[in-house]
Amino acid sequence: MSVLLTPRMMDRLTRLDVNPRRAAGGGGAGDRLAGMAGVGSLFREHRPYAPGDDLRYVDWNAYGRLRSLNVKVFEKEENLDALALIDRSASMGEGHGSKLEVALRVVAALGAVGLARGAAARIHAFPDVPGRRVAVRSIYRGRRDIDAFIRTLESVTGGGTEPMGTALRAAFPRVRPRGMAMVLTDFMDPAEGAGGWRRAIDYLVYRRVRVAAVHMVSAEERDPGALGAVRFVDSETGEEVVIDVDEKMRARYRAHFESHIREVRAYLRAKEVRHVVFEAGMTEDDVVRRLLAIGLIK
């Protein structure tokens, strides 16, 4: 794997910040809103007093004006703890310019920004590839773990053939309820059945995990060109299909692929999962520019 981020880019990223809608999954008190009431410094709302409420939170000024007991509710503040679920199946490719490289570069950029801000990050590359096991820590936390985090990402290699839904089962124990996860995949598994990507997304949503999906596509997938009579070989299953890709078939395929992306987006949107698309072959500048553009970092 090539260098995911150059030192120049690392220096630049440490001056940025992640921009989640809410902090999630960090557990302990932090500097990010947890999106729920709790111990914090940011006032959220008033609610009528109920027996058992801590009298310290009764707003006595309001009582003086309204002659009714109301307690102040504060926004809970937590650290950001995100889990990156990286698809390293054979369809993601391997090496320079592959979808896997760009996916790792996205995770590296986001991780560098978040860790520099004290957030915690975890990595899970799926599916498991015999002989290519990735040595990951259980968690990376803070600026001091940035290098280890990047090195771990650089050690990820591709080649797995297990369907996404099946492969993600191994990661489910590590998914913290109400946590945050980012799935980076090409959604090229057939969406039907237990092994499909829909089942994996459904489970994460069920665990009330806030999921963001990074959809990796390549230029060849969008437009294969007029290849003529060729034999397509599935990189994961080895299955073949012989097709004469002329201009007509090429146009049909392009339309079919765009509809596939729309289908993925529509499904994820229905599950309140954010869907962003990254192209294979993007450089680190392209990745950071894209992350800034879609607002994942600021």
Partner: peptide, 22 residues
């Protein structure tokens, strides 16, 4: 010996070409 083109997944092509193509 038709030219072999590896692709990430052939399911999109198969959906286009039909179930028997693969």
């Amino acid at each position: 010996r038709r030219r072999v083109v590896p692709v990430a997944s052939i399911h999109l092509w198969r959906e286009l070409a039909g179930a028997g193509a693969g």
